[in-house]
Design a binder for these strands. Sequence first.
DNA 1: TATTAATATAAGCAAAACTTATGGATAAGC
DNA 2: GCTTATCCATAAGTTTTGCTTATATTAATA
Lengths: 310, 310
Amino acid sequence: MDKRLRHIALLRCFAAAAKYESYSQAAQRLAITQAAVSQQIRSLEEVLAVKLFVRHGRSMRLTPQGKTLYQHVDDAFTTLSAGFDKVQVEPAEGVLNVTTGLSFASIWLVPKLWKFSARYPDIKVKIIVSTELESLRYSDIDVAIRQGDATDHRVHQETLFIDPVFAVCAPQLVETARIAQPADLLNCLLVEAEDPGRFSWANWFSLSDLTIPRHKRDWLEVSTLEMGINAVLAGQGICLASYCLVKDLINSGLLVRPFPLQIEPGQRFSLLYDPNSPRKPRIDIFTDWLKQELIDDCIVSPSDAGQFAR
Amino acid sequence: MDKRLRHIALLRCFAAAAKYESYSQAAQRLAITQAAVSQQIRSLEEVLAVKLFVRHGRSMRLTPQGKTLYQHVDDAFTTLSAGFDKVQVEPAEGVLNVTTGLSFASIWLVPKLWKFSARYPDIKVKIIVSTELESLRYSDIDVAIRQGDATDHRVHQETLFIDPVFAVCAPQLVETARIAQPADLLNCLLVEAEDPGRFSWANWFSLSDLTIPRHKRDWLEVSTLEMGINAVLAGQGICLASYCLVKDLINSGLLVRPFPLQIEPGQRFSLLYDPNSPRKPRIDIFTDWLKQELIDDCIVSPSDAGQFAR
DNA sequence: TATTAATATAAGCAAAACTTATGGATAAGC
DNA sequence: GCTTATCCATAAGTTTTGCTTATATTAATA
């Protein structure tokens, strides 16, 4: 065996840096630090006694040798991936790691998971609460349910549903605060999640050409929407929430929606998984069930289900 | 990038074990322990969640998946090796690491090296004294000059010369010890290297149908032949040495060869190098010079030079 | 049945792969 | 021309991986 193959571990960083001609992008993609990439490539250059990159301003250009090697490495990696794919189809039974945000997990998914377990007793679903976007590719996470558009185009992603976001509060607050029109909410305690982005109260009021006064003091910032909803359930103010999280509470009369006014487009929930995962059969079973459950729960209408393949 | 490529370092052991269907042979070939191979393959099986080997008596059979993966890994490694070859032709100038035993290094090679340096000032030769056989493939050693047949058929090897081995002593000892026939040597101090193999005094005497008496006490064991030759130069006994090491000393009259009797076949000196080395141009220059020097020094006759390609 | 050969496993050590902190070089903006 | 931002390089420290050693287990052979 070729002794140079002792150093193949170095080639991963090389391939990523060669692809982007940027050590930091390589580092980002590999979920390691730029310094690690720099040192690994230096090691490879020493081992092979070949200059693979030259600095060009703030980027790294491949040398002719670097280009040659990259072609071979890319081909070799493709061959290996194909090999892994061929040997790695796992049976349907086993563990499945599912990640999603706290609110969706605790309010929607976990309360329904007994249905999945009852139907597929051989698949043990573990819920991992996280909002980290990159963890899917470099961890044991099998399925991610994320708010917003995911940016990792290396994995399969699709829109599960786009959820309307609107104001909700406890029914008694409508009476006590005399809420009749949107402007009346300016007199209420506004509950808002950290970093709401488009789904902020400022944006919601602007739909009615209203602005929040600068001196507004009765404001509650919460770290998760779940917290916000719990606060509102207890009669504490009013918050903006996406439909799936409050649907049951509204239907049971614990919360009301004072106005039909909603932020458009709504909150996108995306489904992501690695199509090359050895647990693909298991992932398929879970995601199929998930999609059906969304339809059964009237979060997704059957006609919207056609969107699933994105 | 495929996250499974994080684990490519494990594939080297896998490929070796797959080729031989034997962990110990893989270990031997890779110059590591069997336990390391076993653990690396176990790790790979865990990471891929695929059984790659099954025990079959005292060997390890590849599973169907193992066979599939091996094909891909072998192809990928071939691709990588080709890539390395393409980028790795080094220029002729630079460092060259040469390993040989102490005696040949100090007595023959080093005293002549000035000629090489004068002729090729851009090549810096480093002499590394070692008798270790496997180091050539898994180190920075470029050229090895070894006594005996090398066993590593993964590298280029050829016979440089076969050196007669005979008895030598200081001239005055012939007179003082009255050495007239082989049996007279039994009364002298016999100097012998550690582990002489075929080139032992016992073997030399047997050529004259003599045996060393069991009670012989005046015996000197030395760890290298160089030491032995130095002892003999100082008048201390008589030792068996190969021609190249004593040629100059005999020609200058410092040592004599009391008898034409020599052990047949003589001591084989082999030349070894890695034909895939990035320093092949440098290796070629050095080995060409070496061969010519052996001819110039009358160690090899010009007619024997045809043997060089082995 | 005892011995030998081969792999499996646990514990410990060494080497490799990282991270953090900081410096140097370059590009972009003012 | 200076400042700020971006990117890689390097040193030192930490963590993880890859080994080694020792021993256990399994299977073949005499």
